[in-house]
Design a protein around this nucleic acid. Sequence first.
DNA 1: TGAATATGTGACGAATCCCTCACATTTTGT
DNA 2: ACAAAATGTGAGGGATTCGTCACATATTCA
Lengths: 204, 204
Amino acid sequence: MDVNPRKIPRQARARATVEAILGAGAQLLAEHGFESLTTARVAERAGVSIGSLYQYFPNKQALAAALIDHYGEALAAAFRQRWRGHETLAGAVDAMVGAALVSHPHGPELHRALNELAPRVGRAEKNKGISARIAGIVTMVLEQHRHEIAADLNLADAAALIETVLETVSHRAIEHHPVTPDSASMASHCRRLIMAYLTNPAPR
Amino acid sequence: MDVNPRKIPRQARARATVEAILGAGAQLLAEHGFESLTTARVAERAGVSIGSLYQYFPNKQALAAALIDHYGEALAAAFRQRWRGHETLAGAVDAMVGAALVSHPHGPELHRALNELAPRVGRAEKNKGISARIAGIVTMVLEQHRHEIAADLNLADAAALIETVLETVSHRAIEHHPVTPDSASMASHCRRLIMAYLTNPAPR
DNA sequence: TGAATATGTGACGAATCCCTCACATTTTGT
DNA sequence: ACAAAATGTGAGGGATTCGTCACATATTCA
C-alpha cells in the first residue's frame, strides 16, 4: 500500500487545503475513532470536496500516516520544551510529570487514537521512534543529575521505564480512572514513584 | 443501541455455537483489529452461518460487548490466582510483576484490542471495573505487608498507580519497545521501581 | 411417535464506503 | 492578455458490510 503523498501543494491555497484536511482528520479521529473515519466525512468537515482530498492523499491509510507523522512531531516538540534548566533532580522530575500531564497539544483522545492506529498503517516504527526520542530526552535530564541518582542504575533503562510510566499515567489521569482520586494526587504519587526509584539503591 | 443478547442458548449444541462465535471473534479481533472485524468473517471462522450469529447477538456491537465481558472476566480471574501466599513484600511484588508479564491468557493483542474497543461499545465502565478489581487485589496484597511499606503511603492510591504501571509495562515489554533491552531486564527494573516506591518514605 | 420448540442456513436488500474521472475554476508565468 | 499549470469539484462505479427473513434441520417432551 503506497502511503506517500500523491502531490505536494505548491500554492498557498493548496497548503491551506491540506492543513484543513489534516485538522479535520485529527478532529474526527479523536471524536469517533478510526473505524468511523471516512474520507467523505473528513473532506466535508474540512470544507473541501472529496476529490481534493484524493489529490494529496492516495488513499485513506496515507491520510492516517500523515496524521501520525504530523502530530507525533508536535508531541515530541512540546515535550522537549518543558524540561530545561532545573537545578535539582526533584525539580526536573516535577517538570517531566507536569509535561506528561499536559503535553497533549491536541488532546489525549487524539494521542491515543494515533498510538492505536500506527501499527495498522505501517507507522509502528515511527511511533516507537517518538517514544524513543522522548526517552532520549529523559536520559539527558537524568545525566545532568547523575550525582543525585543511585549509582547502580542504568540511566537509559531507567529513562525507558520512566517514559513508559509517564505516558500511561497521563492517559489514565485524564480519563478519570475510578480508583484514581484526582489528577493532583496522581501527579504527586507519580513524582514520588519516580524519585524513590531514582534515588534509592537496590536493596540487599 | 441494544447490546443485550437476543436469545440465550438452551441446548448444548447452541452453547457450542456461541462459544465458537466468541472464540472466532477474539481471534479475528486480535489479528486484524475492530475495523476489519465483520460479522460474516466471524461466522465463517466460527464455522457457523451468518444467521446463527444474529440469533444470539442482535448486532456487531453486541458481539464486541460480549467479547469484552467474557475475556475481561478471564483476565481478572487469571490475575487473582497468582499472588497468594508470599511471605515477604518482595516476593509478592515479584509475583505481581510476573503475573502482569504473562497474564494475558489470550494474548496481548486481544487485551489491547478489547481495551480500545470498550469505550466504543458502551463498555467503558466495565473495563474500568476490571482495572479497579485488579487494583483492589493489589491493595489487599499491600495490606498483608503493611509493616514493610512506608507508613505515610496510602495503600489504595499506591495500588491504583501500581496497577496502571503493571498493565502498561507489560504491554510495552511484549511489543518489544526499542529502548527496552529485553523483558527480563524490564521486569527487574519494574520490580525495583515498585519496591523503591513502597519502602521509602517521602523525602524532606 | 408426533407435535412443539429450538437451532441452523444463506441469499439478498439497503446502506455505506473507497476511490476515479471528466470537467470547472483559479493561479502562475511570459 | 493568454496559455499552461495547478487546484478544486462531486456524481457515480464497484466493492463491502450489516442485518433480515423465509425456510430447513435437529432436539425435546408428552
